[in-house]
Amino acid sequence: MVFHIVISDASAGRVYKLDHNAPMSTWAYALNYTPLRVAWAGSEAVVVFYVLSGFVLALPFARSRGPSWRVFYPRRLIRLYVPAIASLIFAWITTLIVHRRIISGGSPWLNHHASEPTGPMQILLGSSLMAGWGGLNTSLWSLRWEVMFSLLLPIFLILAAWCSRWDLGKAVVVLLFCAAWPLVGWFYPDLVYISVFSLGVLMAYNLDALSNAASRIPPFAWGIVVTASIVLLTNSWIVAGVDLNNPARRAWIAIASIGAAGLVWVAIGCRAARRLLSHRSIAWLGGISFSLYLTQEPVVVGLAFVSGGRIPLWLEVPLAFVAAVLVGWIFYRLVERPSHRFARAWGSKRRSAAAGLQQSSAPSRTAVPMPGSEAT
């Protein structure tokens, strides 16, 4: 969200387009080309989200059998698609309230939302979550890979469960793919994103080992782990700056994924991090985080067009933050939470139907079992 607020500003637009020629202040330089970039590192935050999502979705299956697939898939797709489609409708409503126009000298990212179509057809096309949302809610590009990962989850689980002594080798293969594909792959470079989920899945299957390793780290050393993870996460800006031809930039996801996995490990194993992330305010933000993710871009874009993209960042960041959190909370209450209830009700109905079918097909007490039926 902070990333979108920053790049909606006219002066920050040059950094977003990697075409920075004007002189920078010391503070601006530090926010771009040092680990302080983590404060508004949008693309890097997506990598953390993918590692965390892979961990969370795989954990029930790693610890036990997990839910049946006939229950998992409907519930998962309902929880993803219903709020996402509602967010497209919400974004379209904001375009009717706030006129979008090309702003001379404005942010390229902001003007993109004025040049792309934003009508009902984009709601229809974007509802697939694969493409077609135009300028309504471009944040959905990252949800596309979440949907694909959810559909392909059984394959990820099979590969993670297969030959556990090779788990480190599997992680190395994933990282090598992330590094090599953008350099040599001519077909769809963004394909590397779905492989990042694998690291989270592997972490779920090695949770005990990760917890044991965390228990041996002294409290002061966690600061070093956090710092190293942030440096790895923001490596492409520190090493390559704005040079698009630098291999370190093109292959940035490989190194950033290690930093993302490190931050997830900190959240799992560091007591201070767990206390912080369990704080009431952080937990509340976590509760509405998906709704906030779905609605923040239309809010940020709408406010930027109202002001012509000229609000000073020191004012725009808190103003847009408060507005986006308020809208996210309302969206959660009106859309996301009811969709969760619907998904749970659907899952309960499918489980009840499956249990009834299993009971009705079970042999009676007087039935003669077939040979080997006990083992089956």
Rank of each mutant, 00 (worst) to 15 (best):
I89Y: 07
D19W: 10
D19Q: 09
V174W: 14
S198P: 14
S364V: 07
N111M: 08
V317L: 10
A254K: 11
P219I: 07
F187N: 07
P363R: 04
L152F: 14
S164L: 08
N206R: 14
Y293C: 00
Y205C: 07
I123S: 05
I103E: 02
W237K: 06
G347C: 08
R70S: 13
L207S: 13
A375K: 02
A214Y: 12
F90P: 00
S373H: 06
A160F: 11
S8D: 10
A228L: 15
T34Q: 03
R310G: 12
W162V: 12
P83C: 00
S164D: 03
D19T: 09
W40Y: 02
L52Q: 02
W109R: 01
W27K: 07
F156T: 06
I7C: 03
V327Q: 01
L357W: 06
I158G: 06
G132F: 05
T366G: 09
V225M: 12
G119C: 03
A354N: 08
Q358F: 10
I93K: 06
P108V: 01
I7F: 01
P74C: 01
G259S: 10
F321G: 02
I238G: 10
D190Y: 15
L168E: 08
A320R: 07
V46M: 09
V82D: 00
V196A: 14
F156Q: 04
P108M: 01
W145L: 03
T138Y: 01
L77A: 07
F49C: 11
S150G: 11
T376C: 12
R250D: 01
A260R: 11
G259A: 05
W141A: 04
L210P: 10
S360V: 11
F220R: 12
M24F: 13
A283Q: 15
A260L: 05
I217E: 07
M203T: 03
W162K: 08
R14I: 05
S361R: 10
W346V: 03
C163R: 13
Y50S: 05
G42N: 02
A62D: 03
S43F: 04
W109D: 09
L319H: 11
P108F: 01
A343C: 01
V301T: 15
L207H: 06
L151G: 08
L125R: 08
T295G: 00
W346C: 15
R101H: 11
M148G: 02
F321M: 11
A345L: 09
L263I: 08
K17D: 14
